[in-house]
Amino acid sequence: MSVKRFVIIGNGPAANHAAEALREKSSESKITMFSKDPFRSYRAHLLPDFIAGLIEEEDLYNRPYAHYNEMDITLRLGQRVVNVDFSKRNVILDHKEVVPFDGLIIATGGKPRIPELFQLFGDIMMTLKTPSDARLWIQKLSYVDSVLIIGGDLTSLSLTKALLKLGKRVKFILNEDAFWPVPLNEEIYRAVTGRLEQRGIEIVHCRRIRRITQLEENLLEVETDSELIEVGALGAFFGLVPDVGFLARTGLDIDRGVLVNEFLKTRFSNVYAAGDCAQVYHPVLRDYWISIGHENAIALGRIAASNLAGSHLEVQVEPENILEVGGVKVNTSWWTEF
């Protein structure tokens, strides 16, 4: 095989499994991974436990640096890809470095979604995606004893658990986007609020948030159409959206994520996408779908790598990936609407 130099953008489960699969299939090639984040590969689902103080930061990380040496994979942390030149086949880094590739896997995952309505308050609203977000939460929680969660996606529920464990007061605004991208129907709404209230969480029933004011460093005032709430911190949990903004205008087909065929290939030869950032074509549905989740990312990462290394595998992920949320089972894969 003539392909010698692989670049993988990302250091999440999709990227890491892709790199490992690539190495299995081509021992000679040079593999470089980039992550804009300065930390190692981590288990995102443990972040709430870390915040709750149940585990040490070190326990979040699941691949020692030595692992990359052993695999002869160059891992470059804290270095953001800002552009890809598909005609010259280069990726361009934030610090103006140009790195050529023969084959490319885009596995940039998702980033916390802030609905347009709330973008104005981006500074004030806290999210949770990475260990450094978690550290910010820990810092914040040492000053405040009440938190208002708006939105309420899947991660917010595990964070809430952590907050309760820490003895914080939690208020919840379950808005329409709560289980984005799962549509919030009456059944889910009732089931979830019931469970939450049982645990001592105050549910704020409202349709709209009118205003958010920062009174002090650690004191916010939130005005809804029904009441005025004072809290120490504000968490925004509206799910994740594919983190592919930097690929706009590179010639790649992008809708919400990177559009790939059922073999995870983009329109450019030897360029693939996998994980939370990929929007995959389904030949039967004749539509694109996105899955969010760890297992899905791993599976897609491996398929993309195999195909880049010369195989011809079609995506065969589980038809359903069921997650239990507050006693309600939610399907987190195969979304075509979002």
């Binding site: 470089t32 300065p38 190692r40 640096y65 990359y68 040496n69 160059t74 891992l75 470059r76 942390l77 804290g78 270095q79 880094l93 610090h95 470095e97 790195v99």
Partner: peptide, 11 residues
Amino acid sequence: LLSVLPPGEEV
């Protein structure tokens, strides 16, 4: 420079 750094270095 960054291309020759081991992964554990903080940049």
